[in-house]
C-alpha cells in the first residue's frame, strides 16, 4: 500500500486517496478536433516519472498533483493544484502529522 504525501495533510495511506489520472492536461477547448481528441484520450504510459492527479478523498478532499516513479512507485514530490510541475523533486514530507491550526489548513 502506497504512502501518499498529501500537500495539505502529510503522508497518508493509499486507502484514503483516489487517483485522478494524468496531471497538467490543459483543457484546450479551442483546439481542433485532433488536438481535442488528444486532450481527451491520448496518454503516455511512462516508465519513470509520471505527474498525476490524486484526491485525498477520505481526508481533506483536496485534489493535488504528485510526481511518482512508475518503476519504484516512489513519490518524488507532491504539490498543490496550480503550482508548476517541480523540475527538481523537493524532499517528500516525512511521516509528519498535519499541522492543523498552524495556518497550513487547506484554503477554501
Amino acid at each position: 500500500m502506497l504512502l501518499i504525501p498529501c500537500p495539505y495533510c502529510g503522508p497518508r495511506p493509499e486507502l484514503e486517496f483516489r487517483n485522478a489520472g494524468h496531471a497538467h492536461i490543459a483543457r484546450a477547448t479551442a483546439a481542433d478536433d485532433q488536438g481535442w481528441a488528444e486532450t481527451l484520450f491520448y496518454r503516455d504510459n511512462p516508465k519513470g516519472v509520471i505527474a498525476e492527479r490524486w484526491r485525498h478523498f477520505s481526508g481533506c478532499g483536496r485534489f493535488f498533483n504528485a510526481l511518482r516513479d512508475t518503476v519504484s512507485d516512489g513519490f518524488l514530490a507532491s504539490y498543490r493544484v496550480g503550482e508548476p510541475r517541480p523540475a527538481a523533486p523537493p524532499p517528500i514530507p516525512e511521516g509528519e502529522a498535519p499541522r492543523i491550526g498552524a495556518g497550513e489548513e487547506p484554503r477554501p
Partner: peptide, 17 residues
C-alpha cells in the same frame, strides 16, 4: 467528485461550496 474536481482544478476562481 466530478463537481469538486472541476471546482478545485478548472474553475478555482468560482466562489462555490
Amino acid at each position: 467528485h466530478h463537481m469538486e474536481d472541476y471546482l478545485q482544478t478548472e474553475f478555482p476562481e468560482l466562489r462555490v461550496w
